[in-house]
Design a protein around this nucleic acid. Structure first.
Length: 263
DNA sequence: AGTACCACCTGACGGC
DNA sequence: TGCCGTCAGGTGGTAC
């Protein structure tokens, strides 16, 4: 699940649970989810420290330690967080478990192990090294138009390129294009300024609605595509049949009638 | 610059 | 029931 709205919901969950807790211990189930250091080293660096703040950039969540360092959560394709009291209640596929001094636990749950846990000393420098673009949620309309300037690729690829804009993935780029009425393969430089403004507005609306729904498909607006990503599903706007195409190395879901391909 | 493909992992699902 | 191929919301590297 984890694209920007999912991680934003994880951040709010973190803020309402693990924030201000002091780490007593760290247990790592599979060290392959650790990026760069051993479980022992990571535990040594977080033990006795409290998690005093949180930041999200794109699809990454950072918990600020009282030392100034940051614990990075990356959720891969299937990751999530869980906060609970009894260690026995750790969900299946828990890969790392923080044990707090208040007796509660925070788990990084990641069945596919494509996510990771890391320690970051200088967050801004780290974000620079990653080459991430500005966070999609914090982006203003003018900045969005500036970013689009001179870009020649397909609009969906551009939306998903984390170095251009951070936070959008396969699902939400589809959702945004659907609401903007734009075909995923339209070259970005074929879009008028007014279409780009529509695209920006669609992005804001989709991200807000998804976060507000707690990222639960059952609570999303009726006209959302997210709950309809299956073969032969019906377009919530025109009641036509939704279609898929391969592009940018992924499967895009769209409505051929509401998002016609130009030419 | 832009895109395609593979790799990393594991689980779910459909076909035979 | 069981095996197999395919696919899945992530990123990173390589290659054209």
């Amino acid at each position: 699940m984890p694209e920007l709205p999912d991680v934003e919901v994880f951040k709010r969950y973190f803020d309402a649970s693990a924030l201000h807790q002091t780490v007593g211990a760290l247990e790592v189930e599979d060290s392959r989810i650790l990026a760069g250091l051993s479980a022992e080293d990571l535990e040594r660096r977080v033990q006795g420290r409290s998690l005093e703040s949180s930041r999200r950039h794109g699809k990454r969540l950072f918990a600020g330690l009282n030392t100034g360092e940051w614990l990075e959560f990356h959720f891969g394709m299937t990751g999530s967080l869980a906060y609970f009291e009894e260690a026995d209640d750790a969900p299946p596929y828990t890969q790392a478990l923080l044990r707090f001094e208040n007796g509660y636990h925070l788990a990084l749950v990641e069945p596919r192990k494509l996510g990771h846990l890391a320690l970051v000393e200088d967050l801004d420098a780290y974000l620079g090294e990653l080459g991430l673009g500005p966070d999609a949620y914090a982006l203003g309309p003018d900045e969005f138009l500036d970013l689009a300037k001179g870009q020649r690729g397909q609009v969906k690829c551009w939306l998903m390129d984390q170095e251009k804009i951070a936070g959008l993935g396969n699902v939400y780029s589809d959702e945004i294009l659907f609401h903007a009425g734009i075909h995923p393969k339209v070259p970005l430089n074929d879009l008028s300024a007014s279409s780009l403004r529509d695209l920006y507005r669609a992005m804001r609306w989709v991200l807000d609605a998804a976060v507000e729904a707690g990222v639960d498909p059952a609570h999303m607006p009726e006209e959302f595509l997210v709950p309809r990503r299956e073969k032969g599903a019906e377009c919530p706007r025109c009641c036509g049949t939704l279609a898929t195409i391969k592009t940018c190395g992924r499967t895009a879901h769209f409505c051929p009638r509401c998002q016609p391909q130009p030419d």
